[in-house]
Amino acid sequence: MKTVKVEALNQTCPLPVIAAKKAIKSLTPDGGKVDVVVDNDVAVKNISKMANGNGYQVSSDTEGETRTVHITATADMLKKAAAHGSIVASVYAFGSKTLGTGDDELGSILLKSYIYSLTQLDTPPEQMLFYNGGAWLTTEGSDVLEDLQTLADKGTQINTCGTCLDFYGIKDKLAIGDITNMYAIVETLNTADKVVTAQ
């Protein structure tokens, strides 16, 4: 089985994910293995998420400061991933900590009410994306963490823009879900069946 090694040390997200994707693509059509060498846990998480989302086998190990993500993509897996295009059924995007424009107090209370209502849906959102001011919603001190946890328990994937967390200085305060990047956000929005933007 063909094995491709990708060195992605000292690279910040989303570069390791892009490099991993490129290497997986090079395995077409026979399949094979890709080993991605990185130096941070966020990269391991994002690469694993991408690989899992496409139905590939994934594992990782750590040796000192370096981490290696092992991806196995058989010919069959590659065919299925290409056919499905990793479609997400429904995505709810949050670009602000309030809902609507006008009065911020009203906007804040409306947003809490909105997120609670999502917990009551028979089919919860498959994915929720938080960016810009929306990043405050997934971090410590947010009033909606309990509802977001309910959604996560029902299987909703919660992702927050890493650039935004960094900008507001709250990266270490992320209380739920994972960190994502603009490439992954755009890809999710582009392949989703339904995108609902809370505005």
């Binding site: 209370i109 809490k112 009410s113 609670y116 209502s117 009033d143 309990e146 509802d147």
Partner: peptide, 8 residues
């Protein structure tokens, strides 16, 4: 500091 949650 009274725990409260909002809903419609």
């Amino acid at each position: 500091k009274l725990p409260v949650r909002v809903m419609p």
